[in-house]
């Protein structure tokens, strides 16, 4: 069972859609103070896994414990949902749908702060400014609608919104995958600064091994819903044992990455 040093403990997690098993007997732990990457190609089940951990999908079987609490079954009641929201947060992939287009960044953060904390209006304003500084946005960028922001800026607000709940764990579900390479690097730097400042743990869901190398301490590799390999980032990326992992790795340049694999998109 989960020890005090285990933030997230997933055992035998399985999700079946009709006659297809998307996630098959997945077991892993996230120890305090480390970050975990779940890698695999699209369709490997990693996003379904993330959705089960945050409670957007109910597992077919298996258990999920986070911060010492059982969250295997869907939350009953809004209080319970909020409690869970302060344990695990998630940042999704698509910067264009990650924000309500009628809300400014400040309004989005304010809504979350009011939901979780009993802060007065003045203190909420201070917190919003702190969070904005943490993700590298200025006041003006926080006070406009998402339409006026770039993809990277929107993802920063999504990250700040996750942080506003003061969670112990943030799941990054391909959170930087849709961003341009240079922007991706900036956001990754922001994420690492945040980890240093707040001690939050990351579960990084990604197909991009270059990103994985930069952020995570440990790796599990998924294929067709199962974990096929696990270990520390160095072990797995530098000396992959499984053919599938070798294949994944072969499709990325050597360490000291210049991710030219990505299609260049115009940055105009």
């Amino acid at each position: 069972m989960a020890t005090d040093d285990t933030l997230l403990d997933v055992r035998g997690l399985t999700k079946v859609f009709g006659d297809r098993t998307a996630v098959d007997q997945v077991t892993f732990e996230l120890p305090r103070g480390r970050s975990l990457a779940i890698v695999g190609e699209s369709g490997s089940g990693k996003s379904t896994l993330a959705k089960m951990i945050v409670g957007l999908e109910a597992p077919t079987s298996g258990t999920i414990w986070a911060c010492g609490a059982d969250r295997s079954a869907p939350a009953t009641g809004s209080r319970e949902r909020r409690v869970r929201g302060r344990q695990v947060q998630i940042v999704f992939q698509d910067p264009y749908s990650s924000l309500d287009r009628r809300q400014t960044g400040a309004q989005a953060l304010d809504e979350v702060l009011r939901l979780h904390h009993d802060y007065g209006a003045d203190y909420r304003r201070t917190r919003i400014a702190e969070l904005a500084r943490l993700v590298g946005l200025d006041d003006r960028q926080m006070s406009v609608r998402p339409k006026a922001l770039s993809g990277g800026q929107r993802q920063r607000i999504a990250i700040a919104r996750a942080l506003a709940a003061e969670p112990r764990i943030i799941i990054l579900d391909e959170s930087v995958a849709a961003l341009d390479v240079s922007i991706q690097a900036q956001v990754l730097n922001v994420l690492m600064d945040i980890r240093d400042a707040t001690g939050v743990a990351y579960v990084l869901i990604s197909h991009d091994l270059a990103v994985v190398r930069q952020i995570s301490d440990d790796i599990v590799v998924m294929q067709d819903g199962r974990i096929v390999e696990r270990g520390t980032t160095e072990q797995v990326l530098d000396d992959p044992q499984e053919a599938y992992t070798q294949l994944l790795r072969a499709s990325v340049p050597e360490p000291g990455w210049t991710p030219s694999r990505r299609q260049k998109r115009s940055t105009t």
């Binding site: 770039s150 990277g152 240079s182 115009s266």
Partner: peptide
């Protein structure tokens, strides 16, 4: 999903007309 996103213009449209 990574290849078909509309170009994210990081050179952001600076300020939305507030009014």
């Amino acid at each position: 999903m990574t290849t078909t996103m509309p170009a994210p213009a990081e050179a952001a449209p600076a300020v939305e007309p507030m009014a």
